[in-house]
Simulated scan of single mutants.
Amino acid sequence: MKALSRIASLQLSDDLLPARIGQGLCYLAAPAVLILAVRALSRSGASHAEIVIGLLAASAVSIGLTVLGTLTALVAELRRR
């Protein structure tokens, strides 16, 4: 039973690997949001004001994803220390 509890308490990986995966996904999603937003807005037949508002919203989401990816890596690095 002691060996089983010792095996169960082993850590398979540190927090850095999932943080790097999350960072990469955030960095990949940021330009994808912009590309898909431009494509959707161009096909929707929206007015100029709606296009501007949509592009501003997509830019805000893209910047938020980039900041989230950066903060994820920083927090994982700080936890490791």
Rank of each mutant, 00 (worst) to 15 (best):
R6F: 09
E50H: 01
R6H: 08
T66H: 01
A37Y: 07
K2E: 12
A3M: 04
I51M: 07
A46M: 02
L71S: 01
A57W: 04
G69L: 00
R81F: 07
L55S: 03
V33K: 09
R39P: 04
V75M: 13
I63F: 11
I53C: 07
L56S: 00
L65C: 01
G22F: 13
S47E: 13
R79W: 10
L56G: 03
T72R: 05
L65V: 00
D15A: 12
E77V: 15
Q23N: 11
A19C: 12
R79G: 12
R80N: 13
R81K: 12
L25H: 08
A32F: 15
L12E: 08
L55I: 10
S59Y: 06
L74M: 08
R20G: 12
T70I: 03
P18H: 11
L56F: 06
R43G: 10
L17M: 15
R80D: 12
P18A: 10
S62M: 05
T66M: 00
A32P: 12
L56M: 08
A19G: 14
S59E: 13
L68D: 01
G24S: 14
G22M: 12
V33P: 10
G64W: 00
S42M: 04
L56C: 03
G24A: 14
C26G: 06
R79C: 14
Q23T: 15
I63D: 05
Q23V: 11
L55A: 07
S59W: 05
G22Y: 10
S59V: 09
S47A: 13
A58T: 01
L68E: 01
L74G: 04
L56P: 00
A37H: 02
S47R: 10
S13V: 15
R20P: 04
A60V: 08
S9E: 04
L17Y: 14
R6I: 11
M1R: 11
A30P: 03
D15T: 14
A49G: 05
D14M: 08
A32W: 13
L4M: 05
A57I: 09
D14W: 14
E50S: 01
L65H: 02
A37W: 04
L55W: 06
T66R: 00
A29D: 05
L68F: 03
K2Q: 10
A73M: 07
S42L: 00
H48A: 11
L25S: 10
R80Y: 14
L17F: 12
G45E: 05
S42A: 02
G22A: 12
S5F: 11
H48Q: 11
D15V: 13
S44R: 03
L36N: 14
L55E: 06
L71W: 02
V33A: 15
S9P: 00
A58V: 04
P31G: 10
V61A: 06
G54E: 02
G24Q: 09
D15S: 14
L78V: 15
T70D: 04
E77P: 05
L55P: 05
L65N: 01
R20W: 15
I63H: 06
A58H: 03
T66P: 00
H48F: 04
L28S: 06
V33Q: 08
T72L: 12
V38H: 06
A19H: 12
